[in-house]
């Protein structure tokens, strides 16, 4: 899996490409934790090019969300394929995690 990190003012955007499973989730966990250590408070995870997610990936998203909220930060997920979004719904994560259709929607949500 490839992770491309960019900045939009004070918002860190992580664009995921490929498959997020037990093999690849440690690298995402490390990168997100590193960004938080560097002071990132507002994050967007862009799922547009993500083909696959398992519970190992869901765990990283949950852990990051909890850590960010403890430091008054925010996270928004965007641009999921419908079957990836369905996994978040089955897990019940959509009830506490904002999931929006596009990167522009995610940026708008964090700038309000």
């Amino acid at each position: 899996m490839e992770i491309i990190e960019t900045k939009e003012k004070d918002i860190s955007v992580f664009k995921l490409n490929g498959r997020l499973d037990s093999n690849t989730s440690p690298s995402l966990e490390k990168q997100l934790a590193g960004a938080m250590e560097d002071g990132a408070k507002n994050m967007i995870i862009d799922f547009a090019d993500l083909d696959y997610i398992s519970s190992a990936g869901l765990r990283i998203i949950l852990k990051t969300t909890k850590d960010l909220r403890r430091s008054d930060g925010n996270i928004v997920l965007c641009a999921m394929q419908d079957y990836v979004k369905e996994v978040f719904e089955i897990a019940g994560f959509d009830s506490f995690l904002p999931i929006v259709p596009s990167l522009d929607d995610a940026l708008a949500k964090l700038r309000i």
Partner: peptide, 13 residues
Amino acid sequence: IDKIEDCRVGGLG
């Protein structure tokens, strides 16, 4: 699950 505080990772798979 409707609150993040209640969300546990065990049994998710």
